[in-house]
Amino acid sequence: AAGIGLLVGMNCPKAVKPRDVITGISGRSQILFLVTYVARYLDLLTNFVSVYNTAMKVFFIAASAATVYLMLFKFKATYDHNHDTLRVEFLIAPCALLALVVNHDFTPLEILWTFSIYLESVAILPQLFMVSKTGEAETITSHYLFALGSYRALYILNWIYRYYFDNFFDLIAIVAGVVQTVLYCDFFYLYITKVLKGKKIVLPA
């Protein structure tokens, strides 16, 4: 929530003058996250867990939709098309196919949930690809990525806890969550060794 809130805040027209909108954020990743949250939270309408659960689902969808709108429509001029080029079809298609093959239950909601779990684990790839192409990440982008990466990494601790105390585990969520966290690891290394020391992330050319 902090990461997504940061992004909306930094892209919000009230908060920053249009020219200050942070560059270096991948619009493609933001679209993938929006698709992820919509596909996963369709049960908002059918399955009430708690106020917190519903509130966070609404926040995730609303904030990522706002970010996509601000980046790709309102501040389209500042969006860096040239460096945000990873083909998302090559991420969406395999996730969709895998969701049809490996899932807990062959029902529309379950398939969409599974697709969303697989998609989230690779949704950051366009962003990491863009950082490698631009060769650097703005500090605020680094904070955003760190928050986004640690969100799923912390879930791994929760899954371990629930395995030992509730004897509950969801293998699909765990495998995808581990893959997702591993994808962030090289970024975590850069974040901790550089950004926290006040430096910017500049990747070797």
């Binding site: 659960n53 966070m56 807990h104 949930w113």
Partner: peptide, 10 residues
């Protein structure tokens, strides 16, 4: 297995 009803995670 935690199908749709049992999902309580984000």
């Amino acid at each position: 297995s935690p199908t749709t009803e049992g999902k309580d995670e984000l």
